[in-house]
């Protein structure tokens, strides 16, 4: 890859990450899935200093995720919207130009809607989760798609909250 094409690809991947953030903010699952390869896998992980272990809070492939998204209307869930602030820190495109890795910082805020008493709680924004996106991409014909996303969160305190991907 030339320097220029590598720089262009890095820019494309950054945009891809930001588009994914918008789609997730909007619960626009179809648009999000369109950004993912068919082999896409997703996980939420964390390290617990309390038990000194890496933990996986959730994991699933694209098919499983899609099935879950389709079931969402049947779930009892907190409907408070989540908003992500994402900053892409690094994008590393492989020399052959077929894959890439990216690490982004993510901060997710919860804008209260349900709460304990929506009359009092609704409208307030709270910090929900902090962490990193650790993404892998597959690049086909110059178009990157998510191959995997590990949302590695720092939180071990997880109150009642979302039932959808972070």
């Amino acid at each position: 890859m030339t320097h220029e094409s590598q720089a262009n690809m890095e820019k494309s991947i950054e945009k891809l990450i930001y588009r994914a953030a918008l789609a997730l903010d909007d619960h626009n699952w179809d648009d999000w899935f369109k950004l993912c390869d068919n082999e896409f896998s997703y996980s939420i992980t964390s390290f617990s200093p309390e038990i000194n272990k890496n933990m996986t809070y959730f994991s699933g492939n694209k098919k499983e995720l899609k099935g879950l998204m389709d079931m969402l209307p049947k779930h009892n869930t907190d409907h408070s919207p989540l908003h992500r602030h994402t900053s892409v820190y690094t994008v590393d495109v492989a020399d052959d130009g077929k894959t890439a890795d990216a690490i982004s910082s993510v901060t997710i805020y919860q804008n209260m809607l349900d709460g304990i008493n929506s009359h009092i709680d609704s409208g307030e924004s709270r910090l929900f989760v902090i962490g990193k996106y650790i993404d892998k991409f597959k690049i086909t014909d110059g178009t990157p798609k998510f191959m995997s996303r590990e949302t590695k969160i720092d939180n071990r305190r997880l109150d009642k909250g979302s039932h959808w991907p972070l």
Partner: peptide, 21 residues
Amino acid sequence: RTRFYNANSGPFKAMGHDKPK
């Protein structure tokens, strides 16, 4: 075991199953 736990008791369990009330 981890997948079973996450689906039934993990913090994001409702992404998997939720028993009808």
